[in-house]
């Protein structure tokens, strides 16, 4: 029980301190851009009604989900192929490095030219393209870095290419794939917002911009808070999935460190 309280204290401690500081720091603020936290919280329920959640938050999250999902699938498939084939690697490495170096938000206007500003397509493509590189590059590294003895073992027991892929290569690369996916997820959240800043009419990012343009400043702040909460929620979900799928990796590392 004491341990549980202690753990909860660690998780909540800093947020509570920050919120308190914000609360008192902003309490007497008269600046229209920096409303007291109490005002922001007061406007919260009237701003984030169920209608708004369905109309703005869910579509944004759906686009994030689709874009991120696409990036995961394409990234793992391409990354595995590139990681396994030295020829493909030699061909694609400079190109991959180039695309990795391009900041994803730069893509927004370019993609909008082809896929449109307002529809779902442009936004999904933006999110998927931004999320793709970390997953792709980490998958390549994960597949390449597979323990050679495991490869020899798979070969000497005549594992078919399919079994080798499913039981050896992908699980072996999975810690790196998760590292890439975690980076991608945060890039995805950023792109989810950015893709809505230009000319979109619904969505979380669009809502925040509209509040700002219509001088609904406390409402704008609530939007920022919602975004932050979504970030926390997604990170927690990700951690849960990761802990489940990489239980062996976590356990192995703990033992190695203990030894």
């Amino acid at each position: 029980m004491i341990r549980f309280l202690k753990a909860t204290g660690y998780v909540l401690g800093l947020p509570v301190i920050l919120l308190t500081a914000w609360w008192f720091g902003s309490a007497n603020s008269t600046s229209p851009f920096w409303p007291p936290l109490s005002t922001i919280i007061e406007t919260f329920p009237s701003t984030w009604t169920w209608d708004r959640i369905v109309g703005d938050v869910f579509p944004s999250l759906a686009r994030l989900g689709i874009g991120f999902g696409l990036a995961v699938v394409v990234g793992i498939v391409l990354g595995t192929a590139i990681g396994l084939s030295p020829t493909l690697r030699a061909l694609s490495e400079p190109v991959l490095e180039f695309f990795r170096a391009v900041p994803p938000p730069v893509l927004v206007p370019i993609i909008a030219l082809f896929a449109g500003y307002t529809g779902w397509l442009g936004k999904i493509v933006t999110i998927a393209l931004g999320c793709l590189w970390p997953i792709l590059l980490n998958t390549v590294e994960g597949v390449r870095g597979l323990e050679p003895v495991l490869g020899d073992t798979a070969k000497s027991y005549h594992l078919s290419p399919w079994r080798r892929l499913v039981f050896v290569v992908l699980p072996g690369a999975s810690p790196r794939i998760f590292t890439g996916a975690r980076q991608s997820l945060s890039i995805g959240v950023i792109l989810m917002v950015i893709s809505e800043l230009f000319g979109a009419n619904r969505g979380l990012g669009a809502a925040i911009v509209q509040f700002q343009r219509s001088f609904a400043i406390p409402q704008m702040w609530t939007g920022v808070i919602v975004l932050g909460l979504i970030g926390v929620l997604l990170a927690t979900l990700f951690k849960v999935v990761e802990n489940r799928m990489l239980a062996w990796y976590v356990g192995q590392r703990q033992i190695e460190r203990g030894a």
Binding site: V149, L150, T153, Y157, R163, W248
Partner: peptide, 24 residues
């Protein structure tokens, strides 16, 4: 192999490790 720790698949249980070649 010499490197016992590295020739077993760490993501599988002992049973799954032994079973995989038999599955094949």
């Amino acid at each position: 192999f010499q490197e016992y720790g590295r020739s077993l698949f760490p993501w599988m249980t002992v049973r799954q490790n032994i079973e995989l070649p038999l599955k094949e």
